[in-house]
Structures are given as structure tokens and as C-alpha cells.
């Protein structure tokens, strides 16, 4: 059944190259679809490929409608702010599940030289400041993703310029989704994006005033980076895949820093955008 047959509006997205349909329903489905189109502006898909994954989202003031939709597996709520917080990760996860075992997926912010596509992968745990890095450095360098770097065997990174999730100042627990253009970010280049640098980010208040980079031995790097991946063990020879990426990037480096803005000259130098 087509979304229109059920009163749903479908928003076609390309999420890490995966065609994903976000089917928006409920009495506020139209409002929700407009919002999704707006904030996922750089992931909208214009082709007619059948979706590999579908995320159903229902926004409706009726608790009965919400309960019924939730029971059927939809993301459902009556509050648009909660929906905004809940929906973005579900969209991302739907694509990650599709790519499990097919590509290397690192929890990372990726920034690229807009002219050449040479990219730095900045790997960090959740809360390490990947979104802040993207927001700060993505106005000078191309914003590729602040969430997941999907890396092919030949070290190409699939753009995933999702909306940036930021905590609302008025409602501490919920995140708002900001369209990248509203933050003045530079869109990913249309040419292939190639990983040329891999960094493990280490933001600390007691870090030196200027960022310090140091090489990480391959074996220790494998151990540390593996903690920041999705579905790594579903790949064939996963450690060899990671090690090959490190080698293509001239080795894994760790960068210790205090403020994201301080990283700009470091990353610019690595991607040849000085």
C-alpha cells in the first residue's frame, strides 16, 4: 500500500547512500513531513528508487492513535519536539542496519577539502564533541557527517550530511535538529570523498592550549577504534579493513585539544586546505 493510501506522506532520503523512506502519518503528518524535508535538506533524494528501509513516524494529539502506531513499530508521539528528538536517530539506525556487514562504519565527524574531496575522519565516542566539531569546522571545510563515516574498501566516504542534533536550551533533555545550511555549513563536494587522515579525538580541559597530535600504534589503534564502530564484526576480516584504512591515512593519530575551533588548522593541513 502506498503511503498516500494510508494518509501518510513519504519523504525520500538518501542516508549513507541507502534509500530510506520516512512515511509521516497522523493528523499532523503533513507538518511532520515538511519538517523532515526541511531539516534533512542535504539528504533528500530525487530518484525513484524503491526504499531499502522505511521509517514510519506518526504525529498525532490522540493518545490512542499514538499507542496504536507505537505498537505497530512506528515512531509515534503527540509532541512535535519529542518527535524531532526521537526520529533522527531512528532514520540513521535504519540505514546502519542496511549497511551492516557491507561497509566499515565509524562513529565520526568527517570534514573534507571542498575542492579536492580529501577528508579527515575524526573518530570519537558519543559526547566527544563530534557535532560541535562539525558545527565549528564545517563552515570552513565541507561537512560530510557528524555521526557515522561509512567507508568503502577503497577508502571512499559516503556523504551523510544529516541535520545537526543540538540540545534545546529550554528543554534540556530533548535535541532539536538543525538543517546544515542554517548553520552556514559547507555542503559535501560532489566529487568522490577520500579518507586521507584518521584521528581519534580526545577533548580534555587539561589538554595543551594548542592541539597536540601523536601517532597511535596500529594494534592499539585497532583496539581503540573498534569501540567506535557499528556492526564491525559482521565484516569479513574486520581488523584488516581497519588497518588498511589507517595505512591509507598515513597511520592513526590521536589529537588532544580543548576547543573545537583550535582544530581548524590541524584538519585543514591534513586535508590540504590550508
Amino acid at each position: 500500500m502506498l503511503p498516500s493510501d494510508t494518509g501518510e506522506l513519504s519523504v525520500p532520503l538518501s542516508v549513507m547512500g541507502v534509500p530510506v523512506a520516512v512515511d509521516c502519518g497522523g493528523s499532523m503528518g503533513s507538518q511532520l513531513a515538511s519538517h523532515v524535508r526541511s531539516v534533512w535538506e542535504w539528504c533528500l533524494r530525487s530518484d525513484h528508487a524503491a526504499p531499502a528501509a522505511t521509517v514510519r513516524a506518526v504525529l498525532d494529539p490522540s493518545s490512542a492513535v499514538v499507542a496504536s502506531a507505537s505498537a505497530s513499530g512506528a515512531v509515534a508521539h503527540s509532541d512535535p519536539l519529542v518527535m524531532e528528538d526521537w526520529l533522527a536517530p531512528r532514520i540513521t539506525i535504519s540505514a546502519i542496519e542496511q549497511m551492516a556487514g557491507r561497509a566499515l562504519m565509524l562513529h565520526a565527524c568527517v570534514l573534507a577539502n571542498p575542492a579536492t574531496g580529501d577528508a579527515a575522519i575524526l573518530v570519537g565516542r558519543s559526547g566527544a564533541g563530534k557535532t560541535t566539531m562539525a558545527r565549528t569546522l564545517g563552515t570552513s571545510l565541507a561537512y560530510v557527517t557528524d555521526e557515522t563515516a561509512l567507508v568503502s574498501e577503497d577508502h571512499l566516504v559516503t556523504p551523510f550530511p544529516k541535520p545537526l542534533s543540538v540540545f534545546r536550551s529550554s528543554d534540556g533533555g530533548l535535541k532539536a535538529q538543525r538543517p546544515p545550511s542554517s548553520l552556514g555549513l559547507v555542503a559535501p563536494p560532489r566529487r568522490p570523498i577520500r579518507a586521507v587522515a584518521a584521528l581519534l579525538v580526545d577533548r580534555r580541559e587539561d589538554a595543551p592550549a594548542s592541539p597536540v597530535t601523536s601517532p597511535v600504534p596500529t594494534l592499539e589503534g585497532l583496539s581503540q577504534i573498534s569501540e567506535h564502530t557499528s556492526y564491525l564484526k559482521r565484516l569479513d576480516s574486520p581488523l584488516h579493513r581497519l588497518a588498511a584504512l589507517f595505512e591509507a591515512c598515513g597511520g592513526l593519530q590521536q589529537v588532544s585539544y580543548q576547543e573545537s575551533a583550535d582544530l581548524l588548522p590541524v584538519v585543514q593541513s591534513l586535508v590540504g586546505a590550508s
Binding site: 594494534l219 573498534s226 564484526k233 581488523l239
Partner: peptide
């Protein structure tokens, strides 16, 4: 084991 990567006489084991 998911994978073993050997380098310089040591290895990482998944």
C-alpha cells in the same frame, strides 16, 4: 575469533 591482525610479532584479536 572474528579476526587476528599480526604486526611486528604482536597481534590484535577480535
Amino acid at each position: 575469533l572474528h579476526d587476528v591482525f599480526v604486526e611486528d610479532g604482536r597481534c590484535a584479536v577480535y
